[in-house]
Amino acid sequence: MKDNEKNVSINEIKSSLKAIEKTEQDTIKTLRMPIWLNIFISGSYGMGVFSWASTRHDNLWMLGVIISSVVFFFAVAIYMYSKRLVGIKPKVLPTHKSELKFGFTIAIFFGLVVVLSRELSIRELWWVAYLGGAIGSISLGYLLYFFPTGNYRAGKSNHV
């Protein structure tokens, strides 16, 4: 730490930290997608997880995977395009360690939901496909609403 920080008062530092939090909350609100789009994206994701878990050789659930993938990517493209029009681009890839950690944790969680739903559903636990779809959908909806920046710290302060 440099010595020159001694010239800054504690109150000023506290107000700076509050200002950062407030700015992050405002930015999160700007980046947050409309509820209907959130439902579209998280719903299509959950549908995809369910369809994939229910797919067998003798049924047509693979069609559900294809349709939900198309809807999912189309809705994400609408979000990215609309934000670009407005003049604010959300982060797609993490740019520092804490974002990378958060993204990695989320990726593992969603990966586990997909794999476990499929594997357990194949082993005659048919209801796991529904559960996996619901968990995937609700979790994604929650993350898109509270953490649209992909930054855990900024999103967490938004809960308060």
Partner: peptide
């Protein structure tokens, strides 16, 4: 203060337009 806010916004977005 203003530069701290600028950096705070830029740190959680990929890019932002000057006007915004």
């Amino acid at each position: 203060p203003n530069r701290l806010q600028i950096c705070s916004i830029l740190s959680i977005t990929a890019e932002i337009e000057f006007k915004v």
